[in-house]
Amino acid sequence: MDPSDAVSLYSCSFDKCEETAQWLLSHTMQRPKFAIVCGSGLGMLAEPLKNQESFSYAEIPNFPSSTAPGHAGQLVFGELQGKLCVCMKGRFHMYEGYSLWKVTFPIRVFKLLGVEILIVTNAARALADSYRTGELMIIRDHINLPGFSGQNPLLGPSQERFGPHFPAFSSPYDQELRALALEISESLGYSSFVKEGVYCMVGGPNFESVAEARLLHMLGADAVGMSTAPEVLVAKDCGLRIVGLSLIVSKVAKEYASRESASREGVLEVSRTWAAPLQTLVTELVSRIGPSSLACSGAL
């Protein structure tokens, strides 16, 4: 196979990302340092942004369309606590039929826009027995289950202009930012419902069987969802610093007699009901990250 064919099959070309970044830079004067990815039903995380400029995904060159319920499909630029941010009101998923380079395309574009810190959020289901609906989990680490079968957004020829082809992944979620999120949680009085744990990504779109839930829990996962890991892989490859936050929207049934039952409608309803503390935590986190914390080693 010709290398250029491999790029088209498995990964996104630098030129496509640059085309999209240049289009955005020509349509807004804002130059964000923070990017926020909103999980299912969590589009309200963009609401506090001031001086908003919003673009539909449909009008942005090379951007996929967001088809999942609870994902508005808008890219919002604005100012949060004096910091310039870009916010994805709606992400892309494997279960929508997108290849992983499409799922993660916006992250590479953010790198080219000058973003240095990625805040990625999701609606997750609890595997840990101690977790309750409405609690928040700061992601310490993740299990990328699709990656075990070769589903990885870094597949294909090396894209050295973004980052090394074999990034180290012993610490994908920035330790300093995780500690800051925990410190802020304590100051806000959130300690009783903020955890730190391991997130597991599955492909979806079905929710887990009892046997699958038991296996994931045995592997060390505290919560499970259908996103996040691919974006984090690419963000780490691009040299971004990452903090991940999960809103626990339900318990996963690990017993056959359990009455726990998941539904897409239930996920969205719980997200809307319990999103306020997450919104506050994200706002305070952006506020507290100073210029020294923004120092970031990039590959470009």
Results as ranks from 00 to 15, higher is better:
S8D: 09
N152V: 07
I139F: 13
A211P: 05
V249C: 07
L216E: 12
V115F: 01
V202F: 07
L240W: 09
R91C: 00
T20H: 04
T283P: 02
G41V: 02
P157E: 12
A72N: 11
G290C: 04
T273H: 02
A223T: 05
F14R: 08
E208L: 03
V198E: 04
L300E: 00
P69Y: 00
M44G: 15
G244A: 10
L177P: 05
P106M: 13
Y131V: 07
P167E: 01
T104G: 08
F105Y: 04
S263Y: 08
N152R: 09
Y256C: 15
V109K: 08
D5A: 15
S56I: 10
E135L: 02
R288G: 07
L278R: 02
N51R: 15
H165N: 09
D237T: 09
P291Q: 15
L100E: 00
D222F: 06
S261K: 15
V109A: 06
Q74W: 09
P146F: 02
L177H: 07
K195V: 02
L49F: 06
S258F: 13
E231K: 09
G147R: 10
R288C: 08
L245H: 04
M88L: 15
D129L: 09
A128V: 02
L80G: 02
L278E: 00
V270I: 15
G220S: 04
R178K: 10
G147V: 08
R272E: 11
V234I: 06
S8A: 10
S170C: 11
L278F: 00
E183S: 10
A123P: 01
S26A: 10
L136M: 13
K102M: 12
E265R: 15
D174N: 11
M94S: 11
K254Y: 07
Y173F: 15
Q175D: 05
C17S: 13
S149L: 12
S187H: 02
H27Y: 09
R140Y: 12
Y190F: 14
G147Q: 13
S65H: 14
V115S: 07
S99C: 00
S8P: 03
M94R: 14
V194G: 01
S191K: 11
L247Y: 12
P48K: 05
M226W: 06
L112T: 10
S170R: 11
P291E: 13
A275H: 13
K236E: 04
G134V: 05
G39Y: 05
S13I: 11
G298K: 14
A123R: 01
D237F: 14
E59C: 01
T133I: 14
S130K: 14
L215Y: 10
D129P: 12
Y190M: 09
D2A: 07
L247V: 10
P164C: 00
E196H: 00
